[in-house]
Design a protein around this nucleic acid. Sequence first.
DNA 1: AGCACGCCGACT
DNA 2: GTCGGCGTGCTC
Length: 723
Amino acid sequence: MPTPLHGHFDYLPPAQGPLPPVGARVRVPFGRRRIVGLVVGHGQGSALPNARLKRIEAVLDETPLLDAPLLNLLRWAADYYHHPLGEVISAALPQTLRQGKLAIARGIERYHVTESGRTIAPDGLTRAPRQASVLRRLQANPEGITLEQLREGQDTDPRAALRALIDKGLVERHHRPCLEPPRDERPDAPALNAAQQAAISSITESLGGFTCHLLEGVTGSGKTEVYLHAIEQVLERGLQSLVLVPEIALTPQLLERFRQRLATPIAVLHSSLSDGERHCAWLSARSGEAGVIIGTRSAVFAPWARPGLIIVDEEHDASLKQQEGFRYHARDLAVMRGHREAVPVVLGSATPSLESLGNVERGQYRRIELPARAGGAVAPRLKVLDVRQQFMDEGLSTALLDAMQRHLDADGQVLLFLNRRGFSPALICHDCGWVADCHRCDARMTWHACARLLRCHHCGHETGLPARCPSCGSPLAPRGQGTERIEQALHKHFPQYPAIRIDRDSTRRKGSLESALAGVREGRYRILVGTQMLAKGHDFPNVTLAAILDADQGLFSVDFRAVERLAQTIIQVAGRSGRALRAGEVLIQTHQPDHPLLSSLLGGGYRAFARTALAERREATLPPYASLALLRAEAVDAQTPLAFLEQARDHLQTLSLPGIHPWGPAPAPMERRAGRYRAHLLLHAPRRQDLQRALGPWLTELARLPGARQVRWSIDVDPADLT
DNA sequence: AGCACGCCGACT
DNA sequence: GTCGGCGTGCTC
């Protein structure tokens, strides 16, 4: 049942008809509601007396919706992450199927205006206001919209009006099959280098059994080409491939490349699909009609008929770990799924996670390297800019400004990376020191000059700009740089070179990211400034200079993974430059030019950094040389969460489990967030099995602790983010 | 999570 | 006298 309750619920078989098989959905009475559940087992008796059992009211699937291997994977995941099975199953199903819609893919119906419907004035329909309103919506979307979209923001059923409009010949209904059919013509594949060929044979030779390959290739080394060839081999064997990518990388360009090259329908699963589209795509993955399933994190639970190959692209990417509710890691589950279903798994990255490198070290994963940049492109040169005691204009050092001028004058494009949205991360009073704080979080408000408001990036709270300092009445000044402010500074320094900002704020409108990227590719913009969005997934072949404006942020975090993320970001940003035949240049502004991380990264690249970082992790017995689980608690006051976690820690000690060390409890790094106080208790275990053995019994008891009712608490196994 | 029950405060 | 605030308890 889709509830946050552990365990299962027993029901009597339906009054008539066959017993629903394991993996089928049923509609059952549950409390005062009737909801959809999934059959996870059959039994002869129940722990409850028969009189208290209710009866299954309807069987929604004659055959299992989830096959045994997938359901067993979900069981394993529920167990490993200590999350209720009902919610795990919910996470694996599209909303339509969760709600009981039949498992039939009918394709997608779209409505659009006819030639006469396009030109007629809707105001003419004075006696039919609903038809007029529907007609207006359709005229605004001449390419057609679905019934679902038409219903949005409307409480009346538009179907009657649609029917009337169709009868009048103003509107037509069009049926689109669920999957785009494969293209008739495919372009020739580019020539492969020796490393790519070796990678492809290594993968294809492992088909039919489980092997985990770590495909390590710098940006531009042609990883995607390796994926495409491996997928073609899988298709030739009549099998399906499952491809996981970060949200940000699942762009129309990537899909277009897959569609051009692969002779199979492709099922796409990601968050901006409509319910109908997701329903369709999911079922076509399940039926085997789609030879390739490509999607973000939750696609790791996509069903398939003929398992062939699993690919996880950008396996180091943080978006693969779900950060709330059921906190699973899609990469780890992909590996487990490959293992259980006996298919090879390919983890691809230019900057592999230290976890995966640890698995290579242990002999668990097989490493494949793609050293050269495909097409003979030259690797970029990385250089640290020591900005200590240097004059900085709006966060830009003179050395950086000079370099930018040089590259711009030589017809290159320049990319500036700053992981901070808004105009300035703080607004302060120069006279008395007053700072605009968020009143719900332990954080400063960020000043957004474009939107003219102060916004908290942690809870979303917004306020207007105070005209004067509320404390002393003096004028207020923005302090520190965000992308908006850099963009403004660029207009001042390089008025002759058009600049564009690319971040979550500037691309909020649908299609604006695509048009911005097109503008960059066509050379309409010469300077790009932006956040993570710029670092991932997009190719900018004419960028010859990339700069990280503030590397210091990543060097002093409380989270031991921050340096790993910084190193990955630097290499990913560097990968944006020098992709054509020109050598790129990468500049890193920092106040810590001698930091060992930066030295190893610059001296020996990501490999050298990873060696240093792994040695440090081993020394400190941190992952991948230990396992962690994080117990979080929050409440409206500061004391209750800490008190609960202390009880939890004390209880753990009474269980006297070997090999488990409680670290904490302690207030969370940002203690107050969205008006709630948060605290952490970290469990550290050198051996994963010890942690797994301990968590079950411990968590069962936690719910009974006296403090448990006063806090919101949750467990995060293998936490990725300790803040 | 949802949903209902139940017990206190402020409105017609 | 009723509406509605959220604490508490239950879901086979």
